[in-house]
Design a protein around this nucleic acid. Sequence first.
RNA 1: GGAGGAAUGGCCGAGUGGUUGAAGGCGGCGGUCUUGAAAACCGCAAGGCUCGCAAGGGUCUCGGGGGUUCGAAUCCCUCUUCCUCCGCCA
Length: 429
Amino acid sequence: MLDRGYLRHNVDEVRGRLVHRVDGGVLDEFIATDAQRRAAVTEVQTLQSRRNRLSARVAAVRRSGGDFSEIVREARAVHAQIREREDSVRSLSDQTDGILSRIPNLPHSSVPLGPDESANEPVSAWGTPPALPFEPKPHWDLGVDLGVVDFERAAKLAGSRFAVYVGAGAKLERALMNFMLDVHTGEHGYTEILPPFIANSRSMFGTGQLPKFAHDLFKLESTDYWLVPTAEVPLTNLYGGEMLAADDLPISLTAFTPCFRSEAGSYGRDVRGVIRQHQFQKVELVKFCAPDSSYAELERLTADAEEILRRLGLPYRKVLLSSGDMGFSAAKTYDLEVWLPGLGEYKEISSCSNFEDFQARRARIRLRHSGRRRRTEYVHTLNGSGLAIGRTWLAILENCQEADGGVVLPEALRGYLGAERITPAGDLA
RNA sequence: GGAGGAAUGGCCGAGUGGUUGAAGGCGGCGGUCUUGAAAACCGCAAGGCUCGCAAGGGUCUCGGGGGUUCGAAUCCCUCUUCCUCCGCCA
């Protein structure tokens, strides 16, 4: 959420920065409604001030044993007026809050302005796509041929966009989870968290999924519970409403969770394989830090995610997203895109963002300085996938496939699986 | 599921209708003292909204929401969370 005062005093600047992110009419609506709200607030506060003065006089007169019935009568009348005007304050506040909560974050000055992914900027690339001396299979053929994933039974169990992992396929998924968590906790300094996979509406609001993106989520019927679409939600909201000591920052957390997404509106996109599922597993990275270090931390966090790809030997490129391609809450986002030989394209496997104080303002996560700096501040929050396991799984299949239909396992995973390859029969060996 | 108890500022903890935005302690910050530090002593310190160029006002906030009252941290209702006991259960 943007600071309402900042928005009020800098509408034109905000309008320019949000050009590809929000309809300008929304900003005008906010300004107009907020002006009404402030007028109503001022009116109520003037009445309250009068009421308080009258009450003080009642107390004084009563102490001296005088008659205060006339003052009480007047105070009653003021009280009635306050009641009346309070309703419009409440209604106008709800309106301005509603508008404000649907306005996306301001892009950082280093972010290219543009309508969509066409304005994204390539930053770097690592690794070279493997030169396979045969026609590489897409993972949905390869995985089914190996017997390590079963889409038909998944459809029977739940429906489309679900997968059942079998044998070496399930173990590979589990090995990836352990490998990623071990690297991030053991070498990158993250604390491992195992959060609930369900969160309430307040938490969903805190990270920006609500109110605008409810249609992307699964809600549990007749409850206030939602299935988490990413561990970003439980991890970021872990400190919701709290005051963090500056000396304790940065705080770096990592978690493995399943992620649940309705994928409403993505009919026909990525329908085959495990690229776009209603449930996928992910290891997430989250940081809380002081405002002056958040962009340095974004570079670090992104490098932490890149390190996983490098250790697995998966070729990837790093892209800086344009203002129009970024998520609602982000101020700056790098996407890591892994090379997929079977599909012949790069596909997003990690998205690393700095949200500045946008989420912290929503979730009320503040910062207490120990020095002379008194002003209360919101912390900056960051997160990134480190990595999406389902997509890492398929990237390994596609990049490490061999002519005989088997898969050579990356060295980093061999210890976790006790094997060097998946044989054409689907066994670990 | 049943029966009780609790929720106050960064933390602990007083406070049952009228200068209580809130005693006291701890922690924090500034200072005195000291070569320096510690101790001791003195002092400063909540947040949101709003009016104002500013200085500075006003208002709201004692888990959330609602109510009673001229006036609520204090009384009533309700929700949430935590604790204790009983029952059930992985």
